[in-house]
Structure formats: C-alpha cells, structure tokens
Design a protein around this nucleic acid. Structure first.
Lengths: 227, 227
DNA sequence: CTAAAAAGAAGGAGCGTTCGTTTTCCTTTG
DNA sequence: CAAAGGAAAACGAACGCTCCTTCTTTTTAG
C-alpha cells in the first residue's frame, strides 16, 4: 500500500517506501527556469501586457508544465514581486552594514551597483533587468493590496538600518542633528529610487552621476542653517 | 451642396454655410470628461489592468460616445501620458524660474507640492492622482517606444533649466564647482522622482520630509572634499 | 427637421486555464 | 546489467470568458 504523505504545501509529495520520481534539484531548476523567463518578459512588457503564452514561449515550456509549478499568472507575478523586493531590500540592508560608516554618496553608489548588477548575466539582452522590474513592481503594488503589503514590509525593513546610519552621521558630528533621522533616511532612499527609475528609463551607464551629485549637494551650506 | 472641409485632424469638421451642430465647448467638455475618467481608472489600476468598460462606466458614457473622441485605448493612454508628462514637466520648469535662486530643498518642495496638488479635486476619492499616474507612466514608457520618446523629450526639457540652477549655485560659490552641473541636476531630479514614488506608494502627507532631508544632506561635509 | 452624438448589442480575437494524452525518468525486476 | 513498469512531468489542443472594437439604431441639439 502506498500512503501518500504531503509534507509542505509547495514541496513535492512522496511515497513512503519509494524514492521520488525526479530529483528535487530538477524541480527547483524548472521552477527557476520559469521564474527567469517570467522576469525577462515582465521586465520587457510589464505584468499585464505580458501574456502567459509569452512566458511559455520564453521559458520554452508548455502550459501544462508551467501550471504544475504555479497555480496561475497571479502567483507567478507574486513570486517575481517577492523575489525582486527581497533581493533589492537585501541590497539596501547589506550596504548599511558597512563599517566604518560610508558617506551617502558611497552608500547610494554601492546600492545602485548591486541593483544593476543583479542577475545581469541572465538573458544577456535585457540590460537593466532589476531596475525595470522595480518600476513594474511599483506600478503593480499600487493596485494589488497583498503585494503592496510586501512592499511596505520591505520599505520598513530597509528604513531601520538606514536611520541608524544617519544617526551615526549625526552622532559623529558630520551632519546637523536637529533633523529627524527618518527624514534624512527617506530622502536617501528616494535618491536611490529616483536613480533606479532613471536607470530603467534612460539606461545611462554611469553611477558616478549620483555619487558626484550627492557630493556636490553635501558641499552646499544652507544660508539659514543653524550650526 | 454641402462641401465638407476638414480643417485639422482632431478638430471637428464643419459645413460651409452652416453652423456646427453642437458647440465646440460641448465637445471639449466631453473629451475632458473622458480623459478625467480614464485618468482616475489608470491611476487606480494601471493602463493594462483597466478595461475600456471600466473607463466607460467611470465616465458614464457608452462605447459609441468614447470612440467618437478617441480611436481606441492606445490613443487614450497616449493622451493621458502626454498630459501627465506635460504638466509635470511644466511644474519642474516653472519651479526653476524662481528668482532669487531657491535652495534645493525649496526647489524640490515646490515641485512636490505642485505635483501632488495637481487635479486634486478631480474625483475626490483618489488622494494622489498624479504621483500614481506618474508611476504608471514610467512603467508604460518602458514598453512603448513612442511614449518613451515623449518622456525623453520631457526629461531633456526639464534638465536644461535645472542645470542652469545648479550652475547658479556654483557661480555663487555656495556649491563646489568641480562637479558637472548635469550630475547634480540629475540627482536633484532623482530626489523628486523618488519622492513621487514614495508618495504614490505610501501616501505620506508631509513634504517636509524631503525638505528637511535635503537640508541635512547639505549640512554634511565630505571628509575628502576639495575646497 | 436634420445631422451629429450617443447608445448598446454583438462580433471577432486573444486571454488564462484545464484536461486527456504522451513522454520522461527513476525504480524494480528478471 | 538490461529491460519493464509506472507514476510524475510535460505537452498542446480546446474551452469559456472577457476584452476591444464596430455598427446599427435611437436620441439630442440647433
């Protein structure tokens, strides 16, 4: 008698007393193949102007194959959004861990290079996969509350270490301390977001632009600033 | 005999020796009614997750009516994109005309307030129509070359006066002059773009956040800065 | 009264998804 | 070690649905 034991929702079921028919690595590879294809399609055309047929063709798989790994288009979109937000959030967090405290221009430069470099060698053709996906993710989270919750979580998770960085500046006396660290952190994140948008939209190559721009801003002295 | 004389592609044709059947203002009002409804729908759901039926219902008109003013969905999208980019571009240009030269935080604050305030009293329900539309426009220009060209033009048109502002800072000696003005201008625009995204995504109310954040950044002194 | 404007049912295309069939691959057996 | 067996995996045609658009009819404005 074969007792079917389902372990975890998304992991394969197996038979007691028998080995799985195909290896877990194989299944993982298929899943990745589908996700990569979907990411390329979505980066190219957005979530809703991309048809399932587009994804199937890009993945070189049939409908039956894809629907074995994802229950539908929505789940595919959710998976991509999760992945992108997770990785980009990780980039922000990791950049904030550097010690000694990097100045803002180095911080943003690091983040930008990491975001742009992520999955660069995926398709080869798409030059800025992650920036483009990021813009699409923003648009999608505006209409999907569940995905919006993920974005909000990610934003909150990133904000915390960045606030600490700003507080570090202020404690070290290199930045006026009469301004809420949250405001500064959000402004820095806005710089990164804005440049991600510019990179996706205009595909400029040089990260130096932000780095230099921030240096220049930092060199300004507000006329009515308190010391 | 009635000779039909078509004057301009999009203006109404009229009859020699006879007055138009409905006034031009009426036609313009209908067109506006459709555009406003479409803008609300697109801001809510994006361009491709919004159906024509959604727009028709929002405008309280029939298909026949809408298709008399626009050849199809594409043209409707293009009209909205054009309008949004035109108005937002105008906001950037106008802010750059202020004299005496406003500091960056005032500049960005002015832009943000104008973008957020635009068409505020349109539907009433949608709190941040233009920021949301802006994000959707970015996403759409990533896949539509014609609309992308409009965005590029707008970006170029905005960049010029903002470069002049930065050069003004540098000439006045309040900003180090060894950094290309273009880099600083693009960074400032990135701040605005990033905060537009944050506003659309999280709907925070206070513009003070960017203003204070920029002030704090300006108060920093780069350790390895040249004088 | 007339022509433009609006209505709204209907058509054709394309979408996401399902499902019966075929193929593949791992285990088991000879 | 080779071949059979069988279940999972993949295939791909087909289905139902919704989409955008058209077209005939009705209403409206001057």
């Amino acid at each position: 008698m074969l007792r079917r034991v389902r372990l975890v929702k998304k992991e394969r079921s197996f038979y007691v007393g028998a080995m799985p028919r195909v290896s877990q690595e194989r299944l993982d590879a298929r899943r990745r193949q589908i996700l990569d294809a979907a990411a390329r399609c979505f980066a190219r055309n957005g979530f809703h102007a991309t048809s399932m047929q587009d994804v199937l063709k890009e993945a070189d798989l049939s409908a039956g194959a894809v629907y074995r790994y994802f229950t539908g288009k929505e789940e595919l979109i959710a998976a991509i959004v999760n992945e992108v937000l997770g990785e980009v959030g990780g980039v922000f967090e990791e950049a904030a861990r550097w010690r000694p405290l990097p100045p803002p221009d180095v911080l943003i430069g690091t983040v930008m290079r990491a975001v742009i470099g992520h999955r660069q060698g995926l398709g080869g053709t798409e030059q800025s996969l992650y920036p483009r996906l990021m813009v699409q993710v923003w648009a999608e989270t505006l209409r999907n509350p569940e995905l919006h919750a993920i974005l909000s979580d990610g934003f909150a998770r990133v904000r915390r270490p960045w606030i600490e960085i700003v507080e570090g500046y202020q404690d070290a006396g290199v930045m006026r301390a009469d301004i809420p660290a949250l405001s500064v952190a959000r402004t820095l994140i806005a710089v990164a977001q804005g440049f991600v948008a510019q990179y996706a939209l205009f595909g400029d190559v040089s990260i130096q632009v932000v780095e230099l721009g921030l240096k220049a801003l930092m060199s300004m002295e507000d006329p009515d600033a308190r010391t």
